[in-house]
Structures are given as structure tokens and as C-alpha cells.
Amino acid sequence: MTFVSGTTPTPDSPPPEGPATPQTDSSNAPEGAAKAPPGSSRLRLSGRDMAAITAVSLVIAFAIAIAVVTFTNKGSSDAVPDEEFLTPQDTGAAAGSLEVGNPVPNLDLKLFDGTTTTLDDLLDRPMVVNVWASTCTPCLREMPDFEAVHQDLGDSVSFVGIDSGESKADGQPFADKLGITYPLAEDPEQVHSNALDLVALPMTLFINTDGTLAHRRLGAMDEAALRSNIEKYLKVPSA
């Protein structure tokens, strides 16, 4: 609303005394046409009024359509909820070339502590490789359980975490908060993730001492499930 300075509103003239009687001009009405009853008047809308009403109606209809589409899309989002990740899936073979019994690629790892190593250098005992990311809630949820098993079985099983799509700067704060002590490697370009045929996060590989894949597991695991898989596929009894 715009106010024009320097103008003074003029009050309307007071209404005449007594009840107002609408004036109806019927002199030009065609013969036989229905006359308006006394005390009533016909509402006449100009073309400008009709155009304004039409425009407002279209705006309201458009707003309702947008709300319906937004609500529908929200209810049918393609985003995968946490529960999908949390449902474990035991896969003997992934969609890629890395299958159970095949050698796991020897990865050149840059660890969070600044050192470099290879996957083969860490294979002095059976290995658990956990592929995770700080943006994956189920990944962060399962990592304390991995740490607990690492503390218990670390002398018999090697643990390595690969931070998929992130650098040390992205993953280190979460690792510190969760108290992770097993080696973590960065994988900002997902070179390692692709080499391991990453299907979904989190993904855990169980690798034999000869470097072959013993088992692949998709989805988060708790401590009991992790111990069970180590004992079943790596033949390392849980304490």
C-alpha cells in the first residue's frame, strides 16, 4: 500500500435521513421482462471486476495444486530411510566383479594418522573392512560396536574402515567423537569404494588371510551380528 504525502482524506457525506429507497429504472425494460421486487437491486459487475475475480480464482487454484504436488512428492520420496540401511543383507556376491572366493584388490590406503599402507600389508590375519561415511547415520550407529569387537579380537582379526567419498577432514571429527581406534582410511574420490564394488552404505567385507573375499554384508550390524559373522566366515571364535 502506498501513501501519498500532502493529501488529506475527505470524509464521506452523511447519509440522508430516513430509509434509503433504491431507484429502479424500468422505463427501458422490455415488455414482459421480470421486474426487480421493491427493496432489491441487481448486482452489475464490470468487465474489470470479472477479470479480477478470474485472476484471484486462478491464483487460489494454482496454490492448491502446488500444495497437493508438494505433499504427494514428500510422501513418495525416493530417499532411502535409515531402516532400509539397517536391514542386513548377506550377499554371497555383489553386482560387480568382486565375488566370494575372488582376490580382493590391493588398495593403497592413506590413513587418518597420516601414514600410508596397503591392504595386503594389513593381511597378516583375517580382516574386516568396513566402508562407511559420516553422512550415513547407520554407519555411525554401528561403529562403536565395531570398536568393541576390535578391542576384544584385534589380535586375531584386523579392522580397517574406509571413509567413502570423504577426506580425513570430513571423517576425523566423527571418529574422534565415537572413540574409534582401528585404522581409518580416506577415500575422497571413492577409488577404493569402486574397487570393492560398493553397493550401499554401510558395507562390510570379511577377508581371508590369503586375500580372498569370504563374505560381504550390506547394512548396519550390532556387536552380536559382527561377532557371529567373524566366527562363521573368518573362523575366528568370539571370546
Rank of each mutant, 00 (worst) to 15 (best):
G161I: 04
L140P: 05
M1W: 00
T24Y: 11
G18N: 05
C139T: 06
V160R: 05
G161T: 14
V4Y: 05
S77K: 00
S57H: 06
I230Y: 09
S167K: 07
H215P: 00
G219M: 03
L201C: 10
S76I: 07
I64W: 02
D152P: 00
S40E: 12
K168M: 10
T7W: 05
P202C: 08
P183E: 08
T91Q: 09
L98F: 12
L107M: 15
M221K: 00
S76T: 11
A148H: 07
S167C: 10
T137Y: 10
A195H: 01
R141I: 00
T2M: 06
A36I: 09
M127Q: 05
S156P: 04
M50V: 14
I207T: 14
A239Q: 10
T54C: 12
P138R: 15
R44F: 13
L153T: 08
G154V: 12
H150D: 15
H192G: 04
V160M: 10
F159S: 13
T72C: 07
M127G: 04
G179L: 11
L205Y: 02
A148I: 09
S46E: 14
Q89K: 15
S97L: 02
P103H: 11
V129D: 03
L213C: 02
L234W: 06
L107Q: 07
G171L: 02
G165S: 15
N229W: 04
S41V: 07
D170S: 11
G18I: 11
T7Y: 02
V59N: 08
A225I: 06
A133S: 13
V104W: 13
C136E: 01
K110S: 13
T212D: 06
G114L: 11
V149S: 12
I60V: 14
I180F: 05
T135M: 02
Q151P: 00
Q23I: 04
V160T: 15
N229H: 08
L109Q: 09
K35H: 14
L205V: 09
G96W: 15
V104K: 04
F174T: 15
D210L: 11
S77R: 04
V80M: 12
S158W: 02
G171P: 08
A65S: 01
A67I: 06
M127V: 14
G165M: 08
E231H: 04
K74E: 02
T54A: 15
A169F: 06
L107N: 02
N28Y: 08
Q89V: 05
A95W: 09
T72L: 14
G161M: 09
E31Q: 14
P126V: 04
L111N: 12
A67T: 13
D124A: 03
T70Y: 00
P173Q: 11
S76A: 04
I66P: 02
Q23A: 09
G47A: 10
S46F: 10
G32Q: 06
P126E: 05
I162C: 07
V59L: 10
A175R: 03
A63L: 13
L213N: 07
D145H: 00
G101H: 03
S158M: 15
D187C: 13
I66F: 05
A214E: 09
N229F: 03
A29I: 11
A63T: 14
D108G: 06
P11H: 01
E147Q: 15
I53C: 04
E166L: 07
D176H: 03
P144A: 11
T137H: 07
